[in-house]
Simulated scan of single mutants.
Amino acid sequence: MRQEHKYTIKDYYFWKITLILAFASFFVFASTYVVQPLLPLFVQEFDVMVSESTLVLSMTIVGLIMGLIILGFLSDRVGRTFFIKFSLIGSVIPFFLIPLSDSFYLIVLLRFIQGFALAGLPAASLAYLNEEIDRRSVGVATALYISSNAIGGMAGRVVTGYLTDHYSWQTAFYVFAGIGVFISVLVFLFLPKSRFFEASRLPFKKDMEGMVFHLKNPAILVIIGIGVVLQFSFTSIWTYLPFHLESEPFSLSMEAISYTFLAYGLGVIGAPLAGWLAGKLNLKKVRIAGIIVLSMGAFITFSQSLIVIVIGLCVLCLGFFTAHSLTATSVTEHATHHKGSASSLYLVAYYVGVTLGSSAVGPIWNTAGWNGVVLLAGLLPLVYLVFVHVMQSRRSERVV
């Protein structure tokens, strides 16, 4: 009976909820990746190594992973809107504090705290959408929410590069603090209260049992592995790209480097295109095609031509968002129970890939430079595909 009262795409409140959460998601992803174009600058300004500079991104993701697990469990018990609001406030405050710090490792600590706070939105918002919006309309709301992720990640990088080149990185942080305050006000004033939230009364032990249940499922393990590998390769390219393009023979400014992140715009195209192709063809085949396209894009960036590198980055983004969107879709298909914890596991795997792709690739960059990073990023997804194919052939079970 309550299902009939959930908002549909024709309702004013459907658009109110969807647009407010899209704005919030935009800010969260912009905040997460705002430091990526600044890594070469931190090396110079704080006299740290390249691998150390990547900690401002990887430790943010470590905080995010911890937050997804802890805040995800708590949102099932306390409520959705509280954690959505907490996420925004907690992520805005570090933007005011970080520019005041002259210690690199204090900045890393503040970014870790910011990452934990940022997790509140993804931990609660998708559940909120599914609870408040009719199942026939929730797909549209979710697609807009995910598209804003890609736009936010792109804008965070591009705007930061531009503002830093023309003013300072501190100015960029204050600008994002202001944006965060504005969006927080919108959320506090206009985000409707939960009407269909029902607090979970299960002990945390049951949630953990759900996680363990999925880790015993070979199909879920393959999907989790894909999540790690995809994000590892994708992040490693984008993390070390600024270092590559600021050096000879390119010698690009930070503003010019930041414009390469506009390739993320293909993510807005890639995700819905992947869904359409999967419906027409076969999800498994389209996902494999996306992974191969990602590797092709990585290999194209071997070039010494800036134009060709940009083309490679566009191909990389198209392949990544195609494969990622379909892999995320596959999680709940293969999870027979505890579908929520299965989605959480995939998100954790996704962000583990971000952490490894940023800081763990440092030794490769130090010893083999850009070519080493590209070779690893391009080969790893292909090697994983072959490995899964061989293992599944032995078990006569095809998942990928």
Score class of each variant (00 low, 15 high):
Ala377Trp: 10
Leu379Asn: 14
Ile237Tyr: 02
Val181Glu: 00
Ile183Ala: 08
Phe42Ser: 11
Ser343Asp: 14
Gly270Asp: 10
Val386Pro: 01
Leu74Ala: 14
Val373Glu: 14
Arg201Cys: 04
Ile146Tyr: 10
Ser341Lys: 07
Leu110His: 06
Ser233Asp: 06
Gly275Pro: 13
Val140Arg: 06
Gly372Glu: 12
Leu41Thr: 11
Ser103Asn: 14
Leu306Phe: 12
Ser343His: 06
His389Arg: 15
Val187Cys: 01
Val181Ala: 03
Phe82Leu: 02
Ser101Met: 02
Ile291His: 04
Ser168Trp: 07
Arg80Lys: 12
Met208Val: 12
Gly319His: 03
Ser247Arg: 14
Ser103Cys: 02
Trp276Thr: 13
Ala177Leu: 03
Ile93Pro: 02
Gly312Asn: 14
Ile237Trp: 01
Phe243Trp: 02
Ser305Gln: 09
Pro272Arg: 10
Phe96Gly: 12
Val361Phe: 06
Ser168Val: 05
Lys10Pro: 08
Glu248Leu: 04
Val228Arg: 08
Val222Gln: 11
Ile98Val: 03
His334Leu: 01
Ile20Phe: 09
Ile98Trp: 00
Leu68Gly: 08
Ile224Cys: 11
Leu189Trp: 01
Arg395Trp: 04
Tyr346Val: 02
Leu38Cys: 08
Ile309Trp: 09
His389Pro: 07
Leu262Ala: 01
Thr327Phe: 00
Thr327Asn: 13
Tyr7Trp: 09
Thr327Met: 02
Tyr174Ala: 03
Ser343Trp: 03
Met1Glu: 11
Val400Trp: 10
Val181Asp: 04
Met49Asn: 11
Ser125Val: 02
Ser125Ile: 02
His337Leu: 10
Tyr240Val: 00
Gly369His: 02
Ser236Phe: 03
